[in-house]
Amino acid sequence: MDAIVKRIIKQVKKGDHNAFGEIVELYKDKVYHISYRMLGNKQEAEDVAQEAFIRAFTNIDRFEINRKFSTWLYRIATNLAIDRLRKKRPDYYLDAEIAGTEGLTMYSQLAANEELPDEKVVSIETQQGIQQEILNLPPKYRSAIILKYIQELSLKEISEILELPVATVKTRIHRGREALRKRLRNG
């Protein structure tokens, strides 16, 4: 796998678009998953994931071929997601009136709740539950927790992605686990 990626990256470094397409195919799910768990919003997750790949392509000259590509790519994605979280402010509220309308609020813009089969409702609820709990973690702990439990990466890899000492990563994971434990106990 690593050898294949290395070969493709060499082509990308020469400016080959198609080779980069292979890279996107290989990593799109993982990168999207990281940004989705970080942001909790599909549209934003897609924006950030796309942006991460574009940054990777334009900065490919800075990537050292002997390093692990996924580490570098995940770092770009995590940093973009953290940036996005910092800038994020609630731009609009559901009950605010839409400009140019009379008494029409954003609620009217929401899709109607469709009837779903019971099982589906349950699985979506647990999924949303997990996502909600992840989003309740402060971003500092969130990124470490996502990389550890969702991406199943080693502490060393996480420390490289987050550019933090392993000890700091450990502390963040511990605190994240603690925060989650408390919430799950109360919930």
């Binding site: 397409g21 799109k28 990168v31 999207y32 998953h33 989705y36 796309q50 709990e133 927790i145 439990y149």
Partner: peptide, 21 residues
């Protein structure tokens, strides 16, 4: 708490992701 996190289902990139990039 750990197994709760580990039970998070895989999320896949939306269709047409690669071509958009």
């Amino acid at each position: 708490a750990e197994s709760f996190l580990q039970s998070a289902p895989e999320v896949r990139a939306p269709n047409g992701f690669t071509s958009k990039v």
